[in-house]
Amino acid sequence: MAEQVALSRTQVCGILREELFQGDAFHQSDTHIFIIMGASGDLAKKKIYPTIWWLFRDGLLPENTFIVGYARSRLTVADIRKQSEPFFKATPEEKLKLEDFFARNSYVAGQYDDAASYQRLNSHMNALHLGSQANRLFYLALPPTVYEAVTKNIHESCMSQIGWNRIIVEKPFGRDLQSSDRLSNHISSLFREDQIYRIDHYLGKEMVQNLMVLRFANRIFGPIWNRDNIACVILTFKEPFGTEGRGGYFDEFGIIRDVMQNHLLQMLCLVAMEKPASTNSDDVRDEKVKVLKCISEVQANNVVLGQYVGNPDGEGEATKGYLDDPTVPRGSTTATFAAVVLYVENERWDGVPFILRCGKALNERKAEVRLQFHDVAGDIFHQQCKRNELVIRVQPNEAVYTKMMTKKPGMFFNPEESELDLTYGNRYKNVKLPDAYERLILDVFCGSQMHFVRSDELREAWRIFTPLLHQIELEKPKPIPYIYGSRGPTEADELMKRVGFQYEGTYKWVNP
């Protein structure tokens, strides 16, 4: 592979701008107003304001973009700056750019259920340069409990009458099928589907988006991507930290609602779906819905739930269990780990287990898709061969690698495990991989909904998990304890083995 010439960040961002501006969906010269509902909250200060700053800094926003914060707290732009700027990672050389960014910011205080507050917000936006005809993007960085009041008031008082209007809704989209349907029906009564952007930030990850290209742009994968060759698929999300004093919020939802029903299920769809007619948003989402419709409700015998306990040999936070978090209700049975087996009941995947695993306070930070292939028929190497695996590593250190057998150097035919490896950090030294939120917010500006969740996708996802969630809430089974920093409950490994996964433990990928 030829040595790549190092590029400056300015040059890299210039390439990104060229890609972005050559499309006809990006209205570079139009006025846009980006409204952050819930501007005083954690999500706004840690993710949304920093993301908008990065896009502005790199010249990736339309030229005439204004940012308006809205929340109940009586704040000023200076207050917003004070709480969000520490997350910007701005350099001293960017000081003038930073001043320009905050000059485009404003803030309006108001209630979430008060019509007069929204009329005041609308008047404020109209007073901005060309504000009355601007395109408006409303980001709901809010708890779902206020979605209905907020969307109703936005629709009645704050819509642009000339430009387009788009609304970005953060997960969780309800707690179960019934609450999700209620919320979807409410929002759909106010906005068209092409105006609604239900954001799952995992769909903005580079390697998640790469799944489609790997599958449908490489001839070698087509013939082997089926039940005849693939023994099982494992989708993993692991965090090495616990709730760390923020367990009160987590306890309301648990690990299945927080990660599995959305992030992991979306990745499953991209692995299992048929080739779409095109890369058009609805063509892709149509195929994802077909996959979900082929999955039956989760069966309790295919589920393992766990909850982390303190590690007596650990240090600091590792010595504390979930129930030691003062914000967690006493005696909570909320799971911090889950392993679930699903089956896609169609011709391509009949009988292939899709194993979804996620948890907190585990032994490493990792998100990946792992396809394990069947054993080689007619073994001539005296059971020395391990199964081939194709691994798409989402985070950290984005990579695609194939675990395969090669001859060990020497005189004899002794096979050993090795890999074919594409590590993004080595291959793409001159490429700026956008943060997931950067990519998705740019998608909203461009009107691309491919990486957002459609209402029928959402409904099918909740259909699969709601009976299990209701059973857990009714019966309150005690989750299996696992030690902070471990791989999780051993019962999860036993479940995976029972459905056909072979864990060798003899080879570990190392970032080159």
Rank of each mutant, 00 (worst) to 15 (best):
A2H: 07
A2D: 15
E3W: 06
A6I: 07
A6Q: 09
A6Y: 10
A6P: 07
L7E: 08
L7Q: 15
L7K: 10
S8D: 11
S8R: 05
S8K: 13
R9C: 06
R9N: 11
T10K: 10
T10P: 05
Q11K: 06
Q11M: 07
V12G: 14
C13G: 04
I15E: 08
L16W: 07
R17G: 05
E18D: 14
E19C: 13
E19L: 05
E19I: 09
E19Y: 07
L20Y: 06
F21E: 05
F21A: 10
F21W: 14
Q22D: 05
G23M: 15
D24Q: 13
D24N: 11
D24A: 11
A25I: 10
A25Y: 15
F26E: 06
F26Q: 08
H27I: 11
Q28I: 12
D30A: 15
D30M: 11
T31E: 07
H32D: 03
H32E: 03
H32K: 04
H32R: 06
I33R: 01
F34H: 01
I35T: 06
I35W: 01
I35A: 07
M37S: 00
M37T: 02
M37N: 00
G38D: 08
A39C: 06
A39N: 02
A39I: 03
S40W: 03
S40E: 06
D42G: 12
D42Y: 14
L43N: 03
L43C: 09
K45W: 11
K45R: 14
K46P: 00
K47Q: 13
K47R: 10
I48K: 00
Y49R: 00
Y49C: 00
Y49V: 01
P50V: 01
T51K: 08
W54K: 09
W54F: 06
D58G: 04
D58P: 01
D58S: 03
L61P: 01
L61R: 00
L61G: 00
E63D: 11
N64S: 07
V68W: 00
V68E: 01
Y70T: 05
A71E: 03
A71N: 04
R72Y: 06
R72T: 06
R72H: 14
R72S: 10
S73F: 04
R74D: 10
T76K: 08
T76N: 08
T76L: 04
V77H: 04
A78F: 08
D79G: 04
R81W: 09
K82Y: 07
Q83S: 10
Q83N: 02
Q83M: 06
P86Q: 10
P86R: 06
P86F: 07
F88W: 04
F88H: 02
K89E: 13
K89F: 09
K89Q: 12
A90Y: 07
A90G: 04
A90E: 03
A90F: 04
A90R: 03
P92S: 12
E93I: 05
E93F: 06
E93N: 12
L96P: 07
K97A: 05
K97H: 05
E99C: 04
E99H: 13
E99S: 11
D100A: 12
D100W: 03
F101A: 00
F101R: 00
F102W: 11
A103K: 13
A103D: 10
S106I: 09
S106W: 04
V108F: 07
V108W: 03
Q111V: 10
Q111E: 08
Q111D: 05
Y112I: 03
Y112Q: 02
A115I: 07
S117Q: 06
S117L: 03
Y118I: 10
Q119D: 13
Q119I: 07
Q119A: 10
R120M: 11
R120H: 11
R120I: 09
L121S: 00
N122R: 07
S123M: 08
S123R: 11
S123W: 10
H124D: 04
M125A: 08
M125N: 03
N126G: 10
A127R: 06
L128H: 06
L128D: 01
L128Y: 08
L130E: 10
S132Q: 12
Q133H: 14
A134T: 12
A134C: 13
N135G: 03
R136P: 01
R136C: 09
F138P: 00
Y139S: 02
L140A: 03
L140S: 04
L140W: 02
A141C: 05
A141Q: 03
L142W: 10
L142E: 11
P143S: 04
P144L: 12
P144N: 14
P144G: 14
T145F: 12
V146F: 11
Y147T: 15
E148L: 10
A149D: 12
V150W: 00
K152F: 08
I154C: 05
H155L: 03
H155A: 10
H155F: 08
E156Y: 07
C158R: 01
M159W: 08
S160Q: 06
Q161V: 13
G163V: 02
W164R: 04
N165K: 01
R166L: 01
R166T: 02
I168C: 05
I168K: 01
I168T: 02
E170Y: 00
E170G: 12
K171Q: 11
K171A: 11
F173P: 03
F173V: 03
G174V: 08
G174T: 07
D176R: 05
D176C: 09
L177R: 13
L177N: 09
S179V: 06
S179T: 13
S180I: 09
L183P: 03
H186N: 07
H186W: 08
I187L: 08
S188E: 12
S188H: 09
S189D: 12
S189R: 10
S189V: 07
L190D: 06
L190A: 12
R192K: 09
R192P: 11
R192S: 07
R192Y: 08
E193K: 04
D194N: 09
Q195M: 07
I196A: 00
I196G: 00
I196W: 00
I196Q: 02
Y197A: 00
Y197Q: 00
Y197M: 01
R198H: 06
R198I: 04
R198F: 02
I199E: 00
H201N: 14
Y202C: 15
Y202V: 11
L203W: 15
G204P: 13
K205V: 15
E206Q: 04
M207P: 07
Q209D: 15
Q209W: 11
M212T: 03
L214A: 12
L214V: 15
L214Q: 13
R215P: 00
R215V: 01
R215N: 01
F216R: 03
A217V: 01
N218R: 00
R219T: 14
I220G: 02
F221E: 01
F221I: 14
G222V: 06
G222L: 08
P223E: 15
P223H: 13
P223M: 07
P223Y: 06
I224E: 03
W225V: 03
N226T: 08
N226G: 13
N226R: 08
D228V: 06
D228R: 12
D228S: 07
D228L: 08
I230T: 03
I230A: 02
I230E: 02
A231I: 03
A231K: 09
C232I: 02
C232T: 09
V233L: 03
V233M: 05
I234M: 13
I234R: 14
T236N: 08
T236L: 02
T236C: 04
F237K: 04
K238F: 15
K238I: 15
K238Q: 15
P240G: 04
P240T: 15
F241Y: 11
F241H: 12
F241Q: 13
G242C: 07
G242V: 03
T243L: 13
G247V: 09
G247M: 12
Y249R: 15
F250V: 05
F250Q: 04
E252G: 11
F253E: 10
F253R: 13
G254M: 01
G254V: 00
G254Q: 02
G254K: 02
G254I: 02
I255H: 02
I256A: 02
I256Q: 01
R257E: 07
R257T: 14
